[in-house]
Amino acid sequence: MSLESAFGDDPAFVPYLAAGDPSIEASKAYVEALDRGGADVIELGLPFSEPIAEGPTIQAAVVRALQAGMTPPRYLEFVRDLNVETPLVCMTYYNLIYQYRDESDRGGPDAFVHAAADAGVEGFVVPDLPVEEADPMRAACDDAGVDLVSIVAPTTGDDRLERLLAISSGYVYVQARLGVTGAKDDVSGRTAETLARLREYDTTLPKAVGFGIRTGDHAERIVGAGADGVIVGSALVDIVAKGAETEKPTDAVAEQLADLARELKAGALQGRMAVEPERK
């Protein structure tokens, strides 16, 4: 699968931005800046009005993107127009997928997943779709040949972990801490604990850690604890927010995004070298 292979020998850098934040034009430029900054997979948010898993930073991004007119059909156009080589993962909430109707009036997960796959999306993360409710989405993704990434939380017990790993594809999203998305100033000790538990399972799926990673130093420590990749959202969205007063993309924001991307990627590499010194 292409998503899994995006996690190569080096640890992967997986940035998140909300599509359409702060405008469709600027957002396109910023996603492309992350591509240049070395992203291995890009999680591209399709904004939903009730983002219950998001902290204040991404909530604000979602509001800006909705105000800029982002909708599911425009999201598919947006993905089609992007000039990036990096595999794209659609991150959104289930109601938007469930309500989608294509031109032939086919509806639901099947229609949306196929339309998104046609546009170039290679996988999905759906934070409000636990394994209990995931069957229709899983079937649609299998049928369209794209991945459905499961989220593992610090509260996930062993019985649930097994079920999650059984239906996850592409990678596993390891939620580093309790709570919602948001840039914190430390790295949760529970990440290492979750990664250690995951190592006991027979899975080849790469483990990407997100929630609260904002610096190269964080990325280094997370990869040092055994992660195959780092997912960074709010720290990048903070930069986008600084340029949000204008609809036009600004070079300053694009440069800062690419700079932070490079810092995070370098940090992740440092972390890997600490674990595998022979690879120097």
Partner: peptide, 12 residues
Amino acid sequence: GGQYVPEVLMPA
């Protein structure tokens, strides 16, 4: 009905 919530809440 059902349970459409983030994984972090499912064990609770």
